[in-house]
Design a protein around this nucleic acid. Structure first.
Lengths: 109, 109
DNA sequence: TTTATATACATTGTACCACACAGTATATAT
DNA sequence: ATATATACTGTGTGGTACAATGTATATAAA
């Protein structure tokens, strides 16, 4: 796998993927990281995920709440998609579909 | 279409697409720009394409030659894929396939 | 006729910003 | 000591965007 290229391709795709994950169910940062860990092309570190989540929060696409996990387990900051986030994600879905089609067409010449 | 996101998603995809185009046949920069013009997600300006082509040249994935076009038409700088470029592109193809599958899986949850 | 504008082609300097690297921080369990 | 679970941050990198420069020709407007 081409690490250099993979790190470039994540721009945009990561945001898209994380929004999709959180649309399916509320998630906290660490959970997102663990989930992506099994996907070689999307495996990503804390230093990328946390700022990304905060950016989506700031843009109003996500909202967050803390959930206490009981003795000895650090509280989790859950993220939930907003209405704005849903319409944004719908747009990303369309754009992604278009992109995949465009590329398929260009590749076959 | 989300211009901001589109400009991010082009990182990596553009390189991939341009290598594909040039693998199919030799091309000059302006030709690449015109070709991408009909694909909303990949439409891109000179200031992006020319440096990209030069980078691929420098990395040894492409080689270039000038072709004279006769009276009044500026000479064209054609790019051609190298052996190294072909093996690089094969890798990009695999990575792209993986990415598309990964994302499809993550989206459906 | 002179001037303005559009097309074809290539280049470059500067700025932006998402992701990467590496580190900080707390608490528990082994 | 080390690993796991959870969250945060400062600094660097590098591909793309914006805007402009340059040559040459053809065409439309003044």
């Amino acid at each position: 796998m081409n690490e250099e290229w993979v790190s470039q391709i994540k721009r945009g795709t990561l945001e898209f993927v994380i929004m999709s994950l959180i649309q399916n169910k509320d998630r906290y940062g660490y959970d997102v990281i663990q989930t992506l860990d099994s996907y070689p092309m999307l495996k990503t570190q804390e230093s990328t995920i946390y700022p990304l989540l905060r950016r989506l929060l700031k843009n109003g696409y996500l909202e967050s709440y803390w959930r206490n996990m009981g003795e000895g387990i650090p509280a989790r900051k859950y993220y939930k998609i907003t209405k704005l986030g849903i319409s944004y994600l719908n747009q990303l879905n369309d754009d992604w579909e278009t992109l995949v089609k465009n590329i398929a067409e260009l590749r076959r010449g």
